[in-house]
Design a protein around this nucleic acid. Structure first.
Lengths: 353, 353
DNA sequence: TTAATTTTTGACACCGGTATCATAAAATAT
DNA sequence: ATATTTTATGATACCGGTGTCAAAAATTAA
């Protein structure tokens, strides 16, 4: 029933080590031998036993994906992107949802790494931003890749000694640029009083998006007003609350557009507007951020910044693999900075007079 | 740095086999010995190496979760439920998204099982309903649990010989009852012309929900009308199309309520109503099914049938473990049939006169 | 108290690969 | 053609646990 490397070796008339070489695509195997072995592999339908490889090898054929993020769409995209690369490389994926509020989190991650002898880790925000996690991974000496909000400027310069400053293992999403772009879109529509309903303050993405928004205002001679910024979380409920707070007293601030920290916030704002009988986009424009499927399922559909999460995570995995194995993959194919692009739908329109 | 079972054995002054017994909670270890070993485990912070256990043991300490379902919320819940049980049991989870349209799917699943020597598999619909998959798993002799739509009636009677008829490895969601309940809710609100926007026809859940709907109509002396059933898919877009089709020609059929096959369909119907300037719930009631977070983020919020996906999947994992290991867990704690319960929100209301 | 039985524990051979290093074969130089 | 270098292959010792079976210790019976 189950075929082992020895069966293949016998069938092909070579040693088991040669079979091992072939399936691991090691160099220095003659073309002819390679073909013979592959033939045997096919004929016997041989599947290398993961456990055995993991045990015998220096590191296992598995990587981990760690996340602390309640956004289902985001997570699924992350998983799928990483999985597709894993499949390509013949690796397994160990997923690890966790919660920053859990005091054992750090220990748990360490345990997981140790038990499964993971070859590497992909960290998504906001975990990827936490110093103590990074510190721990460095202490453990494990390879990892971080998904971050920001830009990968001056890579040479950034090769700092401390982990937080070493940026050659990061994939960036340029939220700053995207927020700038989307704010500009609103400005171009004639909006002058644009509010921003932020996500969690601790997330780097919030800071970045806020900065991009500010810069866009500034570059267009619009004054930044602190009262137009609502600090919340990346959730629908926060969007509802945010919109209510921003538009209080019959919109005394004269807001004509709200930039949502993400699609959920925007959807919440949409919901609140509905409650307050505000027509979108005639009386108020609302934009989201991320372009999750969600943004196409609201009324009206959301203008947002498209973020190709599964592509991003696939590249994160690519980068990770380029660091673990003898970098079989070409680092050059790896994109390390992604900039979401504005997708215009029906939730934004010309500013009312 | 890394602690092995031998280190623990030495530290505790016992043989490595005894340590193995302790960490596997095997019987016939004296309390005193057990304590000594556990003490050593703690002191050294020993983590058993998964790969080694998998290799040496009869089956590996990992189970698989296979799904072909585009619904992110659903998948995340499934994963989390199964994961929580895995954590409890010290197992790993191998996730495997796949697509029925992929001709290699079956082979891929077989490969995964073989490579990772999975101890078992949890199958979610619609994969869990496909005969050829079940057949294959049986041929492979692997343990699995299926999540199905239906009821677990007459368990004794059902112990048929063919896999499709063996139902002691299934967890049921009673969509029939839930659909009945939700339809009745609409009827009680005075609705007499209730449409049903179905999900994918091949899904058992569609058949079940439809049957429950029909029965409720019947029990309340309302005639079933084929023209009021729209056959679509479990997607937002389908909900939009479905509502448009059902309400065509200025709602010539006089529909006052639409039962959505799931929340996404309902959200789509909501969207379409908006397009057609139909007020919800004043002119038309719409209900969803599943109670995904989604149903709380539409306007108005959806009346729906709450389905505790993460609990369901946790029980699926429970059931699986009860079959794989020496059934350490008590089968009696396992619920095998779940009935979603109606959650009333704002998308349904009294029928218009 | 000793024999018989049951419960605990340990020695050791695997599980199915990879890593190392020696050896054989092929390519190149002399 | 032979010596030398390079490249391809194989023998064998692990990796860190589990399973088997026999030995030792603890219980119970006689």
């Amino acid at each position: 029933m189950k075929v082992t490397i020895n069966d293949v070796a016998k069938h092909a008339g070579v040693s088991m080590k040669t079979v091992s070489r072939v399936i691991n695509k090691e160099p220095s195997v003659r073309k002819k031998t390679y073909d013979i072995v592959m033939q045997a592999v096919k004929e016997l339908n041989y599947q290398p036993n993961t456990a055995a490889r993991n045990l015998a090898g220096t590191s296992s054929f598995a990587i981990g994906l760690v996340y602390d993020n309640p956004n289902a769409y985001y997570i699924i995209d992350m998983q799928n992107g990483v999985l597709s690369r894993c499949k390509e490389e013949g690796y397994e994926l160990v997923i690890h949802p966790c919660s920053a509020s859990d005091p054992d989190m750090q220990q748990e991650i360490a345990t997981m790494i140790q038990r499964s002898r993971l070859a590497g880790l992909v960290l998504t925000p906001p975990l990827s931003e936490q110093k103590h996690i990074i510190q721990m991974l460095d202490d453990l000496g494990i390879t990892y890749v971080r998904l971050l909000s920001g830009q990968n400027n001056d890579p040479e310069k950034e090769q700092g000694s401390t982990a937080e400053h070493r940026h050659n293992n990061c994939i960036y999403v340029d939220d700053y640029a995207a927020a700038y772009e989307i704010t500009e879109h609103l400005i171009n529509l004639g909006h002058k009083t644009i509010a921003f309903a932020c996500g969690d303050a601790e997330h780097k993405s919030t800071t970045e998006r806020l900065a991009g928004y500010k810069q866009a205002l500034d570059d267009n001679q619009l004054e930044f007003n602190d009262a137009l910024v609502y600090g919340g979380t990346y959730s629908f409920e926060s969007g509802v609350e945010g919109a209510k707070a921003l538009l209080k007293n019959n919109n005394e601030s004269g807001i004509t557009a709200i930039l949502g920290g993400n699609d959920e916030i925007a959807a919440g704002a949409l919901f609140a507007s509905r409650l307050m009988n505000i027509a979108i986009p005639e009386q108020l424009s609302i934009s989201g951020f991320e372009d999750s499927p969600f943004s196409r399922q609201t009324w009206p559909k959301l203008t947002t910044a498209h973020q190709a999460n599964s592509v991003i995570s696939e590249h994160a995995a690519r980068l990770l693999f380029s660091k673990t194995r003898g970098s079989r993959s070409h680092d050059k194919d790896i994109i390390t900075t992604f900039t979401p692009s504005v997708v215009i739908r029906e939730s934004t329109g010309p500013a009312p007079k």
